[in-house]
Amino acid sequence: MTAVSDDGKRFKRSGRDRHATGNVPLRMRFGVIMRSMWQQSGGRFALIVMACWIAVSLLSLFWTPYPLLQTDGGHAWASPSAAHPLGTDGVGADVLSWLMAGSRTNLVIALLTMLVSAMIGLACTAVMVSGRRALASAGVVVVDALIAIPTVLLALLFAVPFGASIAVIVAACGMTYGLNMARIVKPSASLAARSAYVQAARAMGVSAWRVFFTHIVPSTFPVLAVQLSMSAGTSILAEAGLTYLGVGVPSGVPSWGHTLTTSVRLISVYPLTVLWPGLTVTLVVTALYLLGDAIRDCADPLANVELRKLAATVSRQTHNTGVDA
């Protein structure tokens, strides 16, 4: 299956990014991008939810309203009350405490999935834009072929030797999202690979790896960032599904999927309990999708005026110092 989210227009755009902001240090660009994201309603919502998620994950390492293993047999399936703000589950454990503790597991899964998919994605991209024609076209076709394999089949495959574990989720998600990422990043990467400055660097004898990481990867950054935040969101959905199927997070480890799974039983009798983990997942995944959209809008120098102004200022400064020296 060929490129999913890329049309010729974006292709051309990311090529021009380099010329517009290539001379601006990433650190300075980051500040401007964050500020313009904050000014959008979607971006602001995403940033707030992300901050809360990280804060709650850290907090849960030290404190939760109740210890996770403390159960109150007399108050199973309790409705929300002052003592249990979100109620209790089937064994009388506090739902809020489990959701808080689950947020750190999901954060770890999301971060690891982003890491693994970025590694796999960039490795495939490197092959697909490599100078050797045969290798490059073989890479394209292999990625096209393997991209169709569903996450759940890989998870089931890995679950046979390794059992249910976080590693299974990360490996399965990382592989499928990595392949998808490779295909979406490829147009801007190959544009950068053909550009004059890369040709010049190669001619000067800079090693292929160095060229890839210093010139090609930065040029794909806006597209890459969008894909990474999408991957993080999808990994949370996958965690819920895989955990429910018994090949995700092992039982006893808190996660949103785990809370969702434990509250599924007796849904007809106590529907309120299942509301919270589902809402949490929907909220966080929505925020991650919006984060991706906001990054796309704000990291694109053609769409973001602030970024262009910054580039203009920096180039004027470098120009001036050049003249002074």
């Binding site: 959905l237 999927g257 969702l260 599924v264 849904i267 929907t282 929505t286």
Partner: peptide
């Protein structure tokens, strides 16, 4: 579209059962 894509299938199914499931 965004929120709909963020709903876990498991939870969406539960909500639909709670709405339309025969008997429940």
């Amino acid at each position: 579209a965004i929120v709909g894509g963020a709903v876990p299938a498991l939870w969406g199914g539960l909500l639909l059962i709670m709405l339309f499931g025969r008997g429940v």
